[in-house]
């Protein structure tokens, strides 16, 4: 059996989470809530029960599908646009200088500000959400690809050039592999931004989707349903982020230094 010391990180971390949940559960029996508060207050057990009920009666299926579709298509578009553009901006000084003002300004501004405009242009259906997901996710991918291309060691390019490599071979053998860890780190950031886009996009007048479930439940003060939606979003983000972190740590097989994320 391993000792406590080795398992201390896990034990302490789990203890805090369990303790918090237990405390939350105990609130109604510890303090008397005012009548107004009691109406809106929910406990983890109630949230879990609601989650189970919604799962079993299939109420969630359609919403999960719509939210998932928006997420996947938006993120996919962001990858299709962000990676090539990042590569090109990294290799061409002129293109970099031409696009840099836009990339810089748009990256500093939260793209959610375009949500009303996108709703105006694309309507309340899934396309306005796909576009807001795309707008959020494309910049971390583009910028990280760019940085990966830019940070390539000059000596490595000299090495392949000394063996008479063409520009295409330089790209394939040095530039692209060098940017892979940066791109994966960018993907991790992009997943967070994409999730944000789905949530907020669906808050406003969407007919379906998990964000819509949250917003509707909130306007009817069904708080445990709100938390079900929140927890699903949290769970999905965690699973996706962990998977990408796993990929990142596998990449350290050849890159011992920590990859900086931007």
């Amino acid at each position: 059996m391993r000792g406590y010391r080795e398992r201390e990180p896990f034990i302490l971390g789990a203890a805090v989470i369990v303790l918090l949940i237990a405390l939350w559960e105990a609130v109604p029996s510890l303090v008397t809530l005012s009548r107004g508060m009691a109406l809106f207050f929910t406990t983890p057990s109630k949230v879990a029960a609601t989650f189970w009920r919604m799962l079993v009666n299939g109420e969630l299926n359609r919403h999960l599908y719509v939210s998932g579709l928006e997420f996947v298509v938006g993120l996919g578009l962001a990858i299709l646009v962000g990676l090539p553009l990042g590569l090109l901006m990294g290799r061409s000084k002129t293109l970099d200088a031409l696009l840099d003002p836009y990339v810089n300004a748009l990256n500093a501004t939260p793209r959610l500000v375009f949500l009303p405009l996108l709703i105006l242009w694309f309507g309340l259906g899934i396309w306005s959400k796909i576009m807001i997901v795309f707008a959020g996710a494309v910049f971390p991918l583009l910028i990280n690809t760019y940085v990966g291309v830019r940070n390539v060691n000059r000596v490595l390019i000299d090495v392949v050039r000394s063996f008479c490599a063409s520009e295409r071979q330089i790209m394939r053998i040095v530039v692209v592999p060098n940017s892979v860890p940066y791109i994966v780190a960018g993907l991790r950031l992009a997943i967070g931004r994409a999730m944000l886009g789905v949530v907020v996009g669906e808050f406003f007048g969407a007919p379906e989707g998990l964000g819509h479930v949250i917003a509707e439940a909130a306007s009817n003060y069904v708080v445990d349903k709100v938390f079900v939606g929140v927890l699903i979003f949290m769970g999905m983000s965690l699973v996706l982020t962990m998977s990408v972190k796993k990929i990142e740590s596998n990449l350290t097989r050849w890159r011992p230094e920590e990859t900086k994320t931007f």
Binding site: G192, F203, A217, A218, M234, L238, T241
Partner: peptide, 16 residues
């Protein structure tokens, strides 16, 4: 876990 989550989803709860 909280940092990785889209905590904006809590906006309606905060407003309630």
């Amino acid at each position: 876990a909280l940092y990785a989550s889209p905590l904006v989803a809590l906006a309606p709860v905060l407003i309630i």
